[in-house]
Design a protein around this nucleic acid. Structure first.
Lengths: 106, 106
DNA sequence: CCTTTTTATGAATTATTCTTCATATGTATT
DNA sequence: AATACATATGAAGAATAATTCATAAAAAGG
């Protein structure tokens, strides 16, 4: 398959195509949090959050900062903001259901 | 898990997290094409392209138009353009490798 | 230096998604 | 209506990714 811009998009979107990671990003957009805080606020196990933060960090969708024994994660506002805005715009303009059809059913 | 904006993003990004679909979108951004044309230009089988166009169509990332026995697909320039731009911007500003780290290795 | 707290990692199972092949459906042409 | 061309669909096996559990590693405080 020909290499092009779309090649650069692959891991980018794979990274975003997961409900846990998306939910984490949404939370972190509102305020920076530790892993435990994030796990609690999402009702998920700590190890799951850790596993999912890893690829987000590698792609710089989130940043990390040490604070004692905690690690405070924060979102890359520019990138994540732009993406969420693009989705919102698409949902409003191009989804017959205004975005409801995009929500996963389970 | 709490429902929020990120829920709306799920299928959206799942849809984009596939190399065939991304390559198809990139091609269609340049010019509208039939399924066979697209398959040829991507070096993929027709049925694979058909399978992959389906979810893109359902989410209105692409449009379809009949022309004789052919079906001409075209891209939603606004949405896909915004996304590609967001990726490009992120790759330039936030990838240590300028985006190379985002390309899948195989 | 032992204990507690916090986070990360590995490995195994489970779940999801892709890909392919065969075939069906649809459309035009003769 | 028979044929050829174009596209879609279904189902099955193959490939990937997610989830969980157990445990390791890092950091701070006593």
């Amino acid at each position: 398959m020909k290499k092009g811009l779309s090649e650069t998009c692959y891991k980018f979107f794979v990274n975003l195509s997961n409900p846990t990671r998306l939910a984490a990003l949404e939370k972190l957009m509102k305020k920076p949090m530790s892993v435990t805080e994030l796990a609690d606020s999402l009702g998920q196990e700590q190890s799951m959050i850790s596993h999912n933060l890893k690829p987000l960090l590698e792609c710089n969708f989130v940043y990390i900062e040490r604070q004692g024994k905690k690690r405070i994660y924060s979102a890359n506002q520019e990138t994540v903001g732009a993406l969420f805005k693009a989705v919102e715009n698409h949902a409003n303009k191009y989804c017959p259901t205004g975005g409801k059809c995009l929500i996963r059913e389970n």
